[in-house]
């Protein structure tokens, strides 16, 4: 794949870093790509906003930081407000649709939404919302093979929780596939997430 910059952002406790780790691992260990993950450290990283940046590429990655992400995964309103302005024109936005209201959206951004927290709760563990999000990411971006992401999930989560996390991945993945289908049917799928519009 060409050099792709991804930012995963949310609030502490959502498993933002783990989600980014899984994406990076899938690309660099379970596929033949390269991945570089960096994250904000310090007091700013321990508070409400939490973000990780992962760069994927077919070639060794030189510059370590993202400059203009191709993909933003926003799992909180704060994350959206803070990081949306840096998204590349024509980039892709993935949101936790129950937690993020969209505003000031430039033209040409592709948006995909998933109620990741709710889906995770349906599985009995709210904690796995990040893995739902990764599954959703797999389906809508098609950047990486779902199988390599599944391997990366199993390889990254605490021992004994693999099955649950893989179910979470599959749930997000299936939701993503459905969303893609309905998106091709609808002309303005974006409307339902935009602030002020009836939902």
């Amino acid at each position: 794949m060409p050099l792709t910059e991804i930012r995963v952002a949310g609030f502490g406790g959502q498993g933002v870093i783990l989600a980014a780790m899984i994406i990076g691992k899938a690309a660099s260990i379970f596929e033949n790509g390269y991945a570089t993950l960096t994250q904000a450290f310090g007091p700013e990283a321990r508070g409400s906003a939490c973000s990780a940046q992962v760069i994927l590429s077919d070639e060794p990655i030189l510059y370590p930081y993202i400059t203009q992400p191709d993909i933003l995964i926003a799992m909180s309103q704060d994350a959206y407000n803070r990081f949306m302005p840096e998204l590349k024109p024509g980039g892709t936005l993935l949101i936790e649709e129950d937690l993020v209201r969209i505003h000031d959206l430039p033209n040409g951004i592709r948006i995909h939404g998933v109620p990741a927290t709710r889906l995770a709760e349906e599985l009995g563990r709210r904690l796995v919302l990040n893995i739902v999000m990764v599954g959703f990411f797999a389906a809508v971006t098609k950047l990486l093979q779902p199988e390599s992401l599944r391997k990366a999930v199993a390889d990254s989560v605490p021992a004994g929780t693999e099955a649950l996390n893989l179910r979470a991945f599959d749930k997000g993945f299936e939701y993503g596939l459905m969303e893609l289908k309905s998106e091709s049917a609808e002309s303005q799928p974006v409307d339902k997430w935009i602030e002020g519009l009836p939902h």
């Binding site: 260990i29 993950l37 960096t38 450290f41």
Partner: peptide, 10 residues
Amino acid sequence: DECVGHMTEK
């Protein structure tokens, strides 16, 4: 350096 120390790769 901090960048290499906190950078995750294969």
